[in-house]
């Protein structure tokens, strides 16, 4: 069970959090101007790296705030968490 540092509440057990996947995926401002390929890339394609991963977590069982973490997907070590 991971130990995750909520930027607002401090270190808490993983069971208090929900995972939000890759961070930094910006919703296109004008979706109707995108091709189907571009829209699909936003919608489905993910970098899914083996190694450092910028990802979103939500302190669902606590302050309910979303924040970003940089976690290694092999060692699971969390280098840093920060407010959005």
């Amino acid at each position: 069970m991971l130990l995750i540092k909520c930027p607002w509440c401090g270190e808490r057990a993983e069971t208090e959090f929900s995972y939000g996947g890759e961070a930094g995926i910006k919703r296109p401002l004008e979706p109707d101007k995108l091709t189907d390929e571009e829209w699909a890339d936003y919608l489905f394609n993910r970098s899914n790296p083996k190694g450092a991963h910028h990802e979103l977590w939500n302190h669902a069982g606590g302050c309910r705030r979303w924040f970003e973490a940089e976690r290694d997907t092999v060692t699971y070590r969390i280098a840093v968490t920060r407010e959005l």
């Binding site: 939000g20 961070a23 939500n58 959005l84």
Partner: peptide, 13 residues
């Protein structure tokens, strides 16, 4: 509720 919150906080703060 969680989904609405996620849009508010991550996309449209």
């Amino acid at each position: 509720l969680a989904w609405l919150e996620s849009w508010l906080q991550t996309e449209w703060p």
